[in-house]
Amino acid sequence: MTSKGNSIIDRFTQSAIAVTAAVKVINKEQLLSEKEEHNFKFISSEILQQFDQHYIGKEGVDEALVEVNHAIAETGTVVLECSNEQVRTATCVAEHLYVIVKASSLVECSHDIVDFMAENTQNQGGYIAFISGPSRTADIERVLTVGAHGPRELTIFIVSDL
């Protein structure tokens, strides 16, 4: 699945690295062991069948793991439907955010998910986050600094066999 040089995963990985995210291409089994190795204080994932429902306050949390809906190769972006408030808060205040994305849900560019966008904002509410790399600012003397208000690090697990 890796290495042919120009698969969509490679294109995504390149773009994601350009926005200082880390990318790991793993299979489902490896994902399970990643989960064991880390001490995630918040998990929301269909693959892992775990949907934590606790609120995280202003103190934040070291590591959170969240499964996203899509990933966009052109910009290295992950796309997360997060009208669920707990998921939204966790992804805002985690120091290190880990996300899971199925290889099959990668798309080339943002125009490829306009139907997804419309469907998920059709009803009562809707909150979709495009996340590309960690939170950053260049507001002091234009020096790029990560970890402005949100996560200081972003790691993306691409699950190659799903």
């Binding site: 009208s83 669920n84 408030e85 909150y127 590309s132 950053r136 260049a138 949100g150």
Partner: peptide
């Protein structure tokens, strides 16, 4: 704006979402 391909966040919000 800044010569970035994309910003860290593009956030899309519709209507009233849950708020505890």
């Amino acid at each position: 704006a800044t010569g970035q391909n994309i910003t860290s966040y593009v956030t899309w919000i519709k209507g009233q979402n849950p708020s505890h």
